[in-house]
């Protein structure tokens, strides 16, 4: 897989556009799912994931082959998610006056309509971003602590601690639903 990615990048840098399409199809779902779990909603997945791959397309000639392509790709993805969250935070300072013409679904009490998947996803969404990212990359994407540390630009010990704190946080959030979850 590692060599394949490198080979595809080299081909693309030599003018083979098809190699880029293969790269996208190989990694797009990982990127989309990471964005989904990082943002907690599906509204901007397409926009952000497209921006990720456009950034990849434009910067692939600068890729140094010193780390795995997935490490580099996830770094870009997380940066795009952070940019988006920062923009949303500023935008949310203004009132999100509800648009009466759109028929938004009314949120229901989580206990009334019990959906474990939704419950866990919402729980993850409640965690701080710096805890959410390493836990998702470990448990959902299957990265090692070393790889996560490289993506986040931090120490392995920090990753270990953040994953523990994320699990502890999620454990507390899910505590009232423990019986249903076990």
């Amino acid at each position: 897989m590692l060599d394949d990615d490198f080979a595809l990048i080299k081909k693309f840098n030599n003018g083979d556009e098809f190699a880029f399409k293969v790269l996208i199809s190989r990694h797009r779902e990982k990127v989309r799912n990471l964005i989904y779990l990082m943002l907690g909603n599906g509204e901007y997945i397409d926009d952000i994931s497209q921006n990720v791959f456009i950034a990849v397309y434009r910067n692939l000639n600068k890729f140094k082959f010193e780390s795995q392509f997935t490490t580099w790709l996830h770094k870009i993805t997380l940066n795009k998610c952070r940019d988006h969250m920062r923009r949303e935070k500023i935008k949310n300072l203004f009132v999100g006056f509800s648009n009466e013409d759109e028929d938004f679904p009314v949120p229901t009490d989580i206990k009334d309509e019990f959906d474990i998947q939704e419950l866990v996803r919402k729980g993850i969404g409640k965690l701080p971003e710096k805890l959410r990212a390493p836990m998702v990359m470990k448990d959902f994407e299957g990265f090692s602590y070393q790889e996560i540390a490289e993506i986040l630009g931090t120490e392995v010990g920090t990753v270990k601690s953040r994953i523990f704190r994320a699990r502890e946080g999620l454990r507390k959030i899910l505590e009232p639903y423990k019986e249903e979850l076990l």
């Binding site: 399409k21 779902e29 779990l37 994931s49 836990m135 999620l170 899910l174 979850l181």
Partner: peptide, 23 residues
Amino acid sequence: MVKDRVSGIRPLPEDYYFEQRLV
């Protein structure tokens, strides 16, 4: 339990037209 639940989250349905739109 937490680890199993997070790793067991259903992935998004595949977006087959993603490449087309991106290109």
